[in-house]
Design a protein around this nucleic acid. Structure first.
Lengths: 219, 219
DNA sequence: ACGTTGATGGTACGGCTGTACCATGATGGT
DNA sequence: ACCATCATGGTACAGCCGTACCATCAACGT
């Protein structure tokens, strides 16, 4: 036999090429030849590891969701060891905002997939329900934990706020993508609502951009 | 000369065909032949009234935004003469939710255009900034009016809440589209936030689904 | 009355796309 | 040492797409 190649590795390499070119030219414009060129392999190879374009797209979405989860987890870790719930929620939400090139690609390509899945039932059957529900559950869990620790305003509905925050982040992300809004102003909107949900750290209004360096009133 | 035809009317007819087929098969999948067949005209006619596909898409987006504005206005009018600000805001927000077939098509095709415009600069130059900003201004104005009439909770930032509500409606709309959430639960989320923003009409929590048939406390 | 001009139909062409087929190194088991 | 087999390359094919070209019919101005 010839050199045995790790198929999963090659598939990952090609899938990442797919995401890159989709982020650059739009998912609708990607052809198998573009993916092959971006990955530095021949068209035949893409055919070899994915039998059809449909399977390539399928795997690409799976890979994208995975990478996005890793990105969010990394953001949370970057917030330090055992961070406050609010910081964790903030990290997750802002990871989904297209503030950098990676986030831009994620949001654009993911939205493209979402639009595709509406009319393409083969994509719809996939992870367009599971993944967001998982994110919703995660944020809901964080909010509930915070609620149990009395870190939130009284009378908060954890799941409802989680849904609201995620939907808002998604909507804001799209408006950033189309150039309607700046990433900073979108982040400010999210901050406002986090201030509304969580107690402490001062009032919920008009703390605007200036980060309070002084510690808030001792819990 | 032959029968003089109203070009604008024909263009509208074709543009509506474009929106219909895009809502059915996805904007990425629409070809000029599909549009022609849907409009009941020949391919040549589509070429005749729009010189290129790019111009057709351009006009289609313009038409879509226009029709969406009319839809929202109709919803507001349907709320009665001189309705409360809250009812008007609610009408605008829920008009953008894909609760019926028309709304589904609007949201899907509009989102498709948004995704396209990110990578297609010819589309980006168009109304993807003006239109949403107009909506944002409109909702902001309504909230400010309500605030001046002391119909809102104190300390509300009208523009910030307008941005939040619109972003949330957009995000919720997409989640409805992909089948993740029901239209009713999305509407409930919006209701919650309207209850949070506006004062009166009972408490802001747990009025859940039961519509209050009894009239609220006399203004 | 007639010819110019607007509206429409049919069709062909070049390019691109996904897929299939054939060929050929490279390598490990026997 | 050899051959079966994995990995890879090149290329051809059918189909669709947007666009362009040519033809035709109808009607208004003169």
């Amino acid at each position: 036999m010839p050199k045995r190649v790790d198929h999963e590795e090659r598939r990952t390499q090609i899938a990442e090429a797919l995401v890159r070119v989709a982020g650059r030219c739009g998912l609708h414009a990607v052809g198998m030849r573009d993916v092959a060129a971006e990955a530095g392999v021949s068209l035949r190879l893409v055919q070899y590891y994915f039998q059809s374009k449909e399977k390539l797209l399928h795997y690409g979405l799976q890979h994208l969701a995975e990478r996005f989860g890793e990105r969010a987890a990394a953001r949370v870790r970057a917030a330090g060891d055992d961070p406050e719930p609010r910081v964790m929620v903030e990290a997750v939400l802002k990871a989904s905002l297209p503030t950098d090139e990676e986030g831009r690609t994620f949001h654009l390509v993911y939205t493209s997939y979402a639009v595709l899945s509406v009319t393409d039932q083969a994509l719809a059957a996939q992870s367009f329900i599971d993944k967001p529900v998982a994110a919703e559950d995660a944020v809901t869990g964080l909010l509930q934990k915070a609620q149990e620790a009395h870190l939130t305003r009284p009378g908060m509905d954890a799941r409802l706020e989680a849904i609201s925050l995620l939907a808002m982040a998604a909507g804001l992300g799209t408006s950033i993508l189309v150039g309607q809004r700046s990433a900073e102003s979108a982040a400010a909107v999210l901050d406002h609502h986090l201030n509304r949900i969580f107690r402490g750290n001062g009032h919920d209004k008009a703390l605007s951009t200036t980060p309070r360096s002084a510690p808030g009133p001792a819990h």
